[in-house]
Design a binder for these strands. Structure first.
Lengths: 340, 340
DNA sequence: TCGGCACCTGGGAGCGCTCCCAGACTCGTT
DNA sequence: AACGAGTCTGGGAGCGCTCCCAGGTGCCGA
């Protein structure tokens, strides 16, 4: 409103660069956009002029004229407050940024509540961004589907529970959990429980199903399941529940490190030795896994790679590349420490 | 490049809204920008037309014509990889976003390495954003000063070590540490050490100085100082160092919860009972503080509030508000749990 | 009765780019 | 020698807004 914001932007325009380089606006534009049909001489002159003048193109004008936003949105669904402190989100963000660096694409961060969903769809399908990356933590979210229907290129991180046509990238939660289960069986555990995530999250169900498969393979029962939310206290409550149902538990696969912290606390409180009495395997391999007491054996997922891959997929879509895989699962790996 | 990106943006234009509402472009623009001198009748008609047509204004055009970017940048200096997983950053981001919600201001995320600093200054001072929020973890960063010199409105999170004129918001690290020190003194501790942060970070020095003041007040020596980096392993190494220098330590103020995790590990390993033999006070009040064994007494700083306040300051600058405070310190509070 | 001031409205110009078309020049080919 | 294809260049139009100016209305006091 005021003078600060109201003064004309400083810096040279395309026109000035053209004059300095002794060429036309068009040629400068071609150089900037790395288009063919520019002579080496002209290209060098333009580059030199850009350097001399310290020219930086006006993104707004490019977007307006070029009908391309040169930006993608990272949309975090659900209550942003919780999500942002999630190491999962942080890792994805890191990966997205890493993949974007060097490309002339800006990252716009958006958070959505239920009620402003219509605004968000309007904004995102209004051409302000070229594509959308979405981290959808509760899988029922209708937003990805709506955006896809509106023709917005979108890649979702974490398998969505609804919307078949939507491209997603996820860690291979099923096989990660299966590997954990097999490891517990192989190390001689005979009464193996699991603390699973919420039923309405794909990540929760995939890990539960992997564990179930592992139990089935070994001919062991898969009755010891406690669902919980991804918090330490949730994990603690679930652990107490399981121990009260079956005191003879000798192993537990916890579907998230963060819940495993609570489970460890309960096991300590009940004077169960880890891993001697009860083996504990987590999932995620957060930093807290290695600093836990005892250091937690866990299934590692590479969330940064997840973010990179999502971005790579989206940029591929935008460039109109052919033969992109519909969706991707990234491998997980068991990290064996002291707790199992 | 391809059809997806190349098709004209869908949706109505300002012109269509004007036609539907039976008014001129100018009037619609006035309504959208909440300018005075629009009749109630015209305003209602425009609002209705916007709703009917699902109009969403083109940000690029607004930016270009209005010479205002309607966006601010959150710049994360130093290697982005480390910073992004930092709960501090996550909290700030949350606060920034909370404060921005409802305003028509987009948040653009940028990360800088040393070498692309020139690009970043160019971009940020080129008018692509109206202002800059910066989280500067190592205080010597010249970037804030350069941006301020270039006339870019900027607010820094965390006191910068260089650049006097720059507006910053920080937690009151000095008084937080002072309070922690006084508490340890008041609970009868007689040989109090500290694990301090790096010397080149204001946050590290402010907390150290607060602790020193507390020791001085009580007439206790302040010789037991070990500097370290903000990691669990760094904290562990510092704790070992302190114990080897003075086995009689009965309390330690650790300048970050994350380092306190390492310190606890070492104390456990040496069979020191906490808090009986050694009291431990942390700083930050991260989630890990409450899940630690024993739950950590720590100095709480409200990083989300920090983000909110930074944003509030920057928006105030942009609106040309008078009498804004030059810089702000946010209060901290001691959270007493079991470790001290 | 008439100016003057608030209030309200419309249209033209232009923000700084990209796109497209027209044209010039260089080749190799018929 | 004449043609076309490939290479390179410049200028005009226009992206969708905001800003500014010119003008309309109604109401007040002189």
């Amino acid at each position: 409103m005021t003078d600060v914001a109201r003064n004309r932007r400083p810096g040279p325009r395309l026109e000035e660069v053209a004059r300095a380089a002794g060429v036309s606006r068009s040629t400068v534009s071609r150089v900037i956009n790395e288009e063919p049909y520019v002579s080496a001489k002209a290209r060098d002159a333009v580059h030199q002029a850009i350097l001399d003048l310290g020219y930086s193109p006006n993104q707004a004008a490019r977007t307006l004229a070029g009908n391309r936003a040169n930006a993608i949105a990272l949309v975090v669904s659900e209550q942003g407050s919780r999500v942002l402190s999630d190491p999962f989100f942080a890792g994805v963000l890191r990966g997205v940024h890493a993949e974007l660096s060097g490309r002339r694409v800006q990252l716009v961060l958006m958070m959505t509540q239920q009620d402003d969903e219509k605004d968000v769809v309007g904004y995102l399908s209004g051409g302000h961004v070229d594509g959308v990356l979405m981290v959808s933590l509760h899988g029922q979210d209708p937003l990805p589907l709506k955006l896809a229907d509106a023709g917005v290129p979108i890649v979702v991180g974490g398998r969505p529970l609804v919307g078949d046509g939507i491209q997603y990238v996820d860690s291979d939660n099923f096989n990660g959990a299966l590997e954990a289960a097999r490891y517990l069986v192989a190390t001689g555990r005979r009464r193996i429980a699991t603390i699973a995530g919420p039923r309405d999250m794909a990540v929760g169900m995939d890990r539960l199903n992997g564990w179930r498969r592992g139990m089935a393979e070994a001919g062991q029962p898969s009755d010891l399941v406690a669902h919980s939310v991804f918090t330490p206290d949730g994990g603690a409550a679930a652990m107490e529940d399981l121990l009260s149902r079956e005191p003879e538990i000798d192993a537990v696969f916890v579907a998230a490190d963060i819940m495993a912290m609570g489970a460890l606390r309960v096991l300590h409180a009940q004077n169960r030795r880890i891993p001697r009495d009860v083996a504990v395997v987590g999932f995620d391999d957060l930093m807290i896994a290695s600093t836990a007491l005892p250091p937690l054996t866990t299934v590692r997922q590479d969330v940064e790679q997840l973010g990179r891959t999502m971005t790579w997929c989206l940029l591929g879509q935008l460039d109109g590349e052919e033969g992109l895989p519909p969706s991707l699962l990234l491998p997980t790996s068991l990290v064996i420490r002291a707790s199992a």
